[in-house]
């Protein structure tokens, strides 16, 4: 009745001796699933296009993104696919170059937030007792304190600052959700046989955490990274839009900032705001689609399958 259940059973069980072997066995199966899932494929294609855009920006962009060399607020044309800004910059070139910083912030801040989640979640689960209690309470506190006001306060005191201030602020406010998901899974691994055997072998805690526990949570960690990266892209765009990044660096968020400050919507160059926002939305959507597919991988019941019809016919 539930053919997908087979897949869940065949995911290497953590009870197997040798967590690393289990980890190596997993990626192939995960990869095959993601390739056969339409949502994930779409997500990977969009993400891939943006990555290519960011890497080869100097070759793709027709003009220097900063050059104010053209007539202001030109409509889209053969020379300027998306027209020009009110300062006479080529919007299409800015869009191509803007992919770089946006992707960089999303990737780095996402990784940093994930690392913090793993650190807090695994430490809490592994050490247990009072440490666990304190770390769990801190996680819950960061979970309910609204992120944007906290980010605004920190960024305001940091006085502008560039990409690294943004990354720090996003990582500090974005780790709690992941930590809350990591802890129970790490807790469930704690008394598995392969960890006991590692302890009996005399391995130290650091070795056990890095080489035995983490590899067994790799799919959860990937899911948390995707969620954190999505959060980072949206948060960075929001902060840059209200002027709390370095407005001289080109990214989709700062394009929105300049567009809004020059009243692009009212003064005839709406693409200045539409294009970077659409790119942020598409990038976010690609990450969200991949993330949703990873969710389906872990929980087969979520999949959009046609078995419902069969059951109703039977029932």
């Amino acid at each position: 009745m539930y053919p997908e259940v087979a897949l869940q059973d065949s995911v290497p069980s953590e009870a197997q001796p040798g967590g690393r072997a289990a980890w190596l066995a997993r990626p192939g199966r995960v990869g095959r699933f993601l390739l056969s899932n339409r949502k994930a494929t779409l997500g990977f294609v969009i993400l891939g296009i943006f990555i290519v855009m960011a890497i080869f920006a100097p070759m793709i962009a027709p003009y220097d993104p900063n050059a104010t060399a053209f007539l202001p607020t030109l409509p889209p044309s053969h020379d300027h696919f998306l027209g020009t800004t009110s300062q006479g910059q080529d919007i299409f070139s800015q869009l191509i170059w803007g992919a770089r910083q946006t992707l960089l912030i999303g990737g780095i801040a996402g990784l940093a937030a994930t690392a913090l989640s793993v650190l807090v979640g695994v430490t809490a689960a592994y050490l247990g007792g009072l440490v666990d209690h304190i770390l769990s309470v801190i996680t819950d506190i960061f979970l309910v304190i609204p992120a944007l006001p906290l980010m605004l306060v920190i960024a305001a005191y940091a006085q502008g600052g560039g990409m690294w201030v943004l990354i720090t602020v996003i990582a500090v406010t974005g780790w709690s959700f992941g930590a809350r998901q990591i802890r129970p899974q790490a807790l469930s691994l704690r008394h598995r046989d392969f960890l006991e055997s590692a302890r009996v072998r005399g391995e130290n805690s650091a070795y056990i955490i890095v080489f035995e526990i983490l590899p067994n949570m790799i799919s959860l960690i990937v899911a948390i990274f995707l969620g954190a990266a999505l959060y980072a892209v949206l948060a960075a765009a929001g902060l840059q839009f209200i002027g709390l990044g370095n407005a001289d660096e080109i990214s989709w968020g700062t394009m929105l900032y300049w567009g809004e400050n020059n009243e692009a919507l009212l003064s005839g160059s709406p693409l200045w705001i539409m294009a970077p926002g659409a790119c942020i939305a598409l990038l976010g959507a690609s990450v969200a689609l991949i993330n949703y597919a990873v969710d389906e991988l872990g929980n087969p019941a979520l999949r959009t399958a046609r078995r419902q019809r069969g059951r109703r016919a039977a029932g």
């Binding site: 949502k39 929001g238 939305a281």
Partner: peptide
């Protein structure tokens, strides 16, 4: 389901800007 997965990734404020452009401007 896919539509709302995508929509959850759209920045609030940008959707607001688009709404201003369409409905007001």
């Amino acid at each position: 389901t896919p539509l709302f997965v995508i929509l959850s990734a759209v920045p609030y404020f940008w959707l607001g800007l688009m709404a201003i452009y369409l409905f007001s401007v």
